[in-house]
Simulated assay, not measured.
Amino acid sequence: MSPLVSIVISTHNRAHYLREAVVSVLQQTYTHFELILCDDASSDETPQVCQEFQATDPRIRIVRHEKNIGMQANWSSGVAAARGIYFGKLDDDNHYEPTFLERLVEILETHSEVAFAFTDEWIIDESGKRNLPLTDELSQYYQRANLPSGVLVNPQLHAASQGMGINATLFRLSILREVGGFGNYGATADCELFLRLTSLRKSCAYLSERLAEYRIHETSFSTGLKGIRESEFPVQMWERYSFSDPQAEQARLERLSTSYLMLARAYALEGKLAEARQVLKKITPPLPGVKKAQLFHRIFSLPEALVRVLIKRKYSV
């Protein structure tokens, strides 16, 4: 019998997008799955949407939180509820292509040594329209554009380069639980999971096809300014890990430097300029971005009102 796949859709107040995400799972060519809808205390029509779908398909279960527990905890509730051999996590505003499960289950069944497999992904806008130029640009940036299909030779490099997308990945559930699931890193818990898995020498495979769609819009976490707490998580994550591979370590240092800049900006936006300057002092060789840090340090010595205008409009990181 085909192995059961557990798909978790974590959701909060996005009923209008949730329907599309659920349909993308129900349209899979691989049909032996359970779909777990983890609703983090939504106050819109999300509960009704979940119930409507559950009434039409016995493979659907609902995990409803009466009080908001946060993104990472909601993801973890899905891991706890899952009963499958394999596990996928899909955000409520993203989609799977119809053959996503079929193709990745085939890889995991063929390569028993692989802990997870992932694909490339399309970038779509608020309306669901694919953005080919941005898709190509990000595939290149995340080093997937020329990456051949197969078991990766240097998975740490791709984890450090953030080339693995959680919405385009299928895990072995046993290994996901073995390593502790999603850690307490806020919205960066998915990235930290890939860093942890590859640091523990877990192998992975890549499929050079775009079998998922990642939506960028005004309310997605990938856009907009972040507060201090959310900006602290990436700093803690990149400080925790280091790599013996020179390329992976360089990628980590680049992202650590950027995370320091983002945290400094978050402090400055809340008027905590002294704290912002202290964070910038951490950007020293061999970290890249020293000149930008020095520029920000000078900016953060200006009057607070002027600082807010500059960092919001001109000096983005």
Results as ranks from 00 to 15, higher is better:
Pro3Glu: 09
Leu4Met: 15
Leu4Gln: 11
Val5Gln: 12
Ser6Trp: 12
Ser10Asp: 10
His12Arg: 15
Tyr17Cys: 14
Arg19Asn: 10
Ser24Phe: 14
Gln27Cys: 14
Gln28Asp: 14
Tyr30Asn: 10
Cys38Asp: 10
Ser43Ala: 13
Glu45Lys: 14
Pro47Met: 05
Pro47Thr: 11
Val49Ala: 00
Pro58Lys: 09
Ile60Ala: 07
Ile62Asp: 09
Val63Ala: 03
Arg64Thr: 12
Arg64His: 15
Arg64Glu: 09
Asn68Leu: 14
Gly70Phe: 10
Asn74Ser: 14
Ala80Tyr: 11
Gly84Ile: 08
Phe87Met: 02
Leu90Val: 09
Tyr96Arg: 04
Pro98Thr: 04
Thr99Val: 12
Phe100Ser: 01
Leu104Asp: 03
Ile107His: 01
Ile107Cys: 04
Thr110Ser: 08
Glu113Cys: 09
Glu113Asn: 12
Phe118Ile: 01
Asp120Ala: 14
Ile124Cys: 08
Lys129Gly: 05
Lys129Val: 13
Arg130Thr: 05
Leu134Pro: 05
Thr135Tyr: 04
Asp136Pro: 06
Glu137Asp: 12
Glu137Ile: 02
Tyr141Val: 14
Tyr141Cys: 03
Ala145Arg: 13
Ser149Thr: 15
Val151Glu: 15
Val151Pro: 09
His158Asp: 01
Ala160Lys: 00
Gly163Trp: 03
Met164Glu: 05
Gly165Pro: 06
Arg172Cys: 02
Arg172Ser: 08
Ser174His: 11
Ile175Pro: 01
Glu178Thr: 04
Gly183Asn: 00
Gly186Trp: 00
Thr188Asp: 00
Asp190Thr: 06
Asp190Gln: 05
Phe194Asp: 02
Phe194Gly: 00
Leu195Met: 08
Leu195Trp: 02
Leu197Gly: 00
Ser203Ile: 00
Ser203Pro: 04
Ala212Gln: 12
Tyr214Leu: 07
Glu218Gln: 11
Glu218Cys: 07
Thr219Tyr: 11
Gly227Lys: 13
Gly227Tyr: 12
Arg229Met: 06
Gln236Trp: 03
Gln236Phe: 02
Gln236Met: 07
Trp238Ser: 01
Phe243Cys: 05
Phe243Asn: 02
Pro246Ser: 07
Gln250Val: 00
Gln250Glu: 11
Gln250Tyr: 01
Ala251Ile: 03
Ala251His: 03
Arg252Gly: 01
Arg255Pro: 02
Leu256Ala: 04
Ser259Pro: 06
Tyr260Gly: 10
Leu261Lys: 03
Leu263His: 06
Glu275Ser: 11
Ala276Met: 08
Val290Arg: 06
Ala293Gly: 10
Leu295Ser: 10
Phe296Tyr: 15
Ser301Phe: 06
Ala305Glu: 05
Arg308Ser: 12
Val309Gly: 11
Lys312Phe: 15
Ser316Cys: 12
